[in-house]
Computed example of a mutant assay.
Amino acid sequence: MSKISFKNDYSEGAHPAILSALSETNLVPQEGYGYDAYCEEARAMIRRECDLPEADIYFVSGGTQTNLLVISHLLRPHEAVIAAASGHINVHETGAIESTGHKVCTVPTPLGKLTTDDILAVLTHHTDEHMVKPAMVYISQSTEFGTLYSRRELSELSAFCRAHGLLLYLDGARIGSAVTASGEDNPSLREIAALVDAFYIGGTKNGALLGEAIVFTSRRPDNAFLFQIKQRGAMLAKGRILGIQFATLFRNGLFYELATHANRMAAELSAGIAACSYSFLYPSQTNQIFPILPNSLIEKLSTEYDFYVWQSVSPDSSAIRLVTSWATPPENVAAIIHSISSYRH
């Protein structure tokens, strides 16, 4: 019997509507390399959704690829990017950004979120041409810890970056979960689009087989980014595969529906664990939660469930990461809550 997985939000394949759309259009001939009708439809949908009629939008297969492409394209050779020490580009991308010749200037942050003071400290430290020049701020919404920038926090970062001539780039691998999270102070997709220079909409972690939609909030002055995509091996001949998926996700609100489900499952899971009197390493705001459990309980749970042990908290306890997805069934959430409650007694 296989384990119930709470390891990530991309273990399953794709939502049935996406598989159906791919199947139904399978034998319809189309232009290659993203010039097909489906990619054009998806671009138009995203422009409307973000209220960005002049946005440039490109589809690529994965998040690391997206970050490498965008950051290396927007920065000059001597320029660097500022990120939280926990940021994906610093921890989980095998030095992809550095491999393009750009330094990642990191700041330790307790909740994975940068502040204007954090950024100012980096700018103050880099004084002259003997050091790299910080020219971009990289943030994630939601963060690696499942936390969120509030509307106020994102607005402050945006204003600071614009005042200091910095580009603001947002990693949206889990932007669906972010914009559908509970709370009135979470910025919407349109608000995010108005506050950053570039971002991407993650499909891989929200019901697609694969794919991310890169959004430059204003038109590129030339086609240079297309050359970057091709040169780095990111241009799919069958670009239609990505366009069909994003068109399906943004047709009839499916993108938001799937993310809302993932968040709802996480909220139920978080409430059930809290009811067992366990605490959390970080606030539970999206579809990633980090309960702190006794190591003996973690060992028992690992025989039935898949998850990451995130970090040691004490000699006898650790934080684990549990992730819910668009496909997480309520009975799986009920099962692990029952197991935690049962093992506790």
Rank of each mutant, 00 (worst) to 15 (best):
S2G: 07
F6I: 15
N8S: 13
N8F: 09
D9W: 05
G13A: 14
L22R: 08
T25G: 07
T25P: 02
N26E: 14
E31K: 15
E31H: 06
G32P: 04
Y33K: 06
C39W: 09
C39G: 00
M45H: 11
I46L: 15
I46E: 00
R48Q: 12
R48T: 13
E49H: 06
D51A: 15
D51S: 15
P53H: 01
E54N: 14
E54K: 09
E54S: 11
A55M: 04
A55C: 02
G62W: 15
T64C: 09
T66E: 10
N67T: 04
L68C: 12
L69M: 11
S72I: 02
L74D: 03
R76H: 08
P77H: 13
H78Q: 14
E79K: 04
E79D: 06
H88E: 13
N90K: 14
V91W: 00
T100C: 08
G101C: 03
H102G: 06
K103W: 01
V107M: 14
P108D: 06
T109L: 05
P110K: 15
L111H: 11
I119G: 13
A121F: 06
H125P: 01
T127Q: 10
M131N: 12
M136C: 10
V137C: 10
S140L: 03
Q141K: 08
Q141E: 08
T143G: 06
E156V: 07
L157D: 08
S158W: 04
F160G: 03
F160Y: 15
H164M: 10
Y169N: 04
Y169F: 14
A173M: 12
A173Q: 12
R174H: 13
I175D: 10
E184C: 04
P187D: 10
P187S: 07
S188N: 03
L189I: 11
L189V: 04
R190G: 14
E191I: 08
A194N: 06
V196E: 01
F199D: 06
Y200M: 12
G203P: 04
A208I: 01
L209K: 08
L210I: 10
G211S: 08
G211D: 09
V215W: 03
F216K: 11
T217N: 07
R219F: 06
N223V: 00
Q228M: 06
I229A: 00
G233H: 02
A247Y: 07
L249N: 03
N252G: 12
L254P: 11
F255R: 04
Y256H: 04
E257P: 02
A259M: 05
N263Y: 08
M265V: 07
A266K: 03
L269F: 07
I273K: 00
Y278R: 02
S279Y: 06
T286N: 05
L293F: 12
P294L: 11
S296M: 06
L297G: 04
L297H: 07
I298Y: 15
S302A: 13
Y305F: 15
Y308C: 01
P315E: 00
S318C: 09
A319G: 11
S325M: 04
S325A: 15
P329K: 10
P329M: 04
N332T: 02
A334I: 00
A335W: 14
I336L: 02
H338M: 04
S339A: 13
I340Y: 01
I340N: 01
S341A: 13
S342W: 00
